[in-house]
Design a binder for these strands. Structure first.
Lengths: 218, 218
DNA sequence: AATAATTTTTAGACTAGACTAAAAATTATT
DNA sequence: AATAATTTTTAGTCTAGTCTAAAAATTATT
């Protein structure tokens, strides 16, 4: 059984590992959790003793299989709760994160199994991210950043990179959201912005925004 | 904002106060929370500083109005979650307590408001206990322990005193539950047991059991 | 009223988790 | 290869919450 703090470290390391492929540095973890490197060193030793990760001094850490399963389970809980909040309790996609951060630490296998059934075994959370299954398998889907599309390519919005309230509310305002059809009409070399058509409406999108929207091409 | 530990103390003191009317002793709190009296003294000082309760050395404690509202709010959350677990997630009334103990500490006013609406503003939890409203008002209902009924008195089961799994599962086995009609056919002076009719079926009930079932007379 | 029993508080120690400041190791730069 | 810059670890401190053991206060009993 892990403490909330231990779970937060495990989750952070898991997320960092999905974008880095080599060992995760102390500093990277400290930055992700807005804590100090010295605190990370302490916790890393503890998690190493608990067989969650492999640690050699000055060399960064890697999750063990056990650590990965543990992480996937926490993420599964987080994302199922997010679905619950949006589908059943009228939360918007920019409101769910903070509460799900708390709910993910609730310990009860029955609770999460029943919640999963109650929600109809959802495959994605409100931001389009896949929900790991009970065994910790996380189905990866084919997706590309909008910023990588060429002129005349098109697809459907399947996720976001930045999940901050600011960005999500901006998307709401622009009526951009999961499931919307997006086509790149033109790319502007001057500022790397995009002219796109979203559900029939033409608009210009900055490179920064295009860098935070995932598209499944079609 | 209170820590989980602080919330547990506040709730324990509130519950002890509903059955005692005078100041709550250090020892009583320690027993309720299965902790040590010295730990209770420390926490009491802290909660006194935070204006949750009034404390004079060696004299027990009393919750302030603020403390009472805080307690009612925690209990409101606990009981709403219990309703959710039973009504939506197929938990039985003996399974909910442990999980609700965790869920009651989740911080989000919107969450609890929406949960309340989602459940249709329930008035009672699965054990028949009333759910405080948002202001912390807890409607008290007229109820008597089955053990206090006289021969030929009757009523309906509206609650239980002991909420342990053992007792609740025993009641399930005997098909005793909330809403059941109960009539005292006779009292046995030898062991203070009761001959009762529950939904048409006659059975004998020990004094210990009768002491843990609440009846609304009719 | 004095003594005994109980309750409560204090004093000091422990753990988890975080922090600061300094030392040690690694990596980058000249 | 030597020095500078950066990263990581160590050492020591702090807080919340708990504990044990002993002291102090209160309550009960003779």
């Amino acid at each position: 059984m892990f403490s909330q703090s231990e779970e937060n470290y495990i989750k952070a390391i898991y997320h960092l590992a999905t974008v880095s492929d080599k060992g995760i540095s102390t500093n990277a973890i400290a930055k992700k959790l807005t804590t100090k490197a010295s605190s990370v060193t302490d916790m890393i030793k503890k998690l190493s003793d608990k067989k969650v990760l492999v640690y050699k001094k000055y060399q960064g850490v890697t999750l063990t299989d056990f650590g990965k399963r543990t992480a996937a389970n926490i993420i599964r809980k987080h994302r199922l709760w997010e679905v619950f909040l949006v589908e059943k309790l009228n939360f918007t996609w920019d409101e769910v994160h903070e509460v799900a951060e708390q709910l993910e630490h609730i310990k009860s296998p029955k609770l999460i199994d029943e919640l999963d059934s109650f929600l109809g075994h959802p495959k994605r959370d409100p931001h389009g991210d896949p929900i790991p299954d009970k065994e910790g398998n996380l189905p990866q889907i084919q997706k590309s950043l909008l910023s990588t599309l060429e002129k005349n390519e098109k697809g459907v919005c399947v996720g976001v990179n930045d999940t901050s309230s600011e960005f999500l509310r901006f998307l709401d305002k622009q009526e951009i959201g999961l499931g919307k059809n997006i086509e790149v009409l033109d790319k502007e070399p001057f500022d790397d912005s995009f002219l796109v058509k979203i559900n029939g409406k033409e608009m210009t999108i900055s490179n920064k925004v295009a860098n935070n929207i995932y598209i499944q091409k079609n």
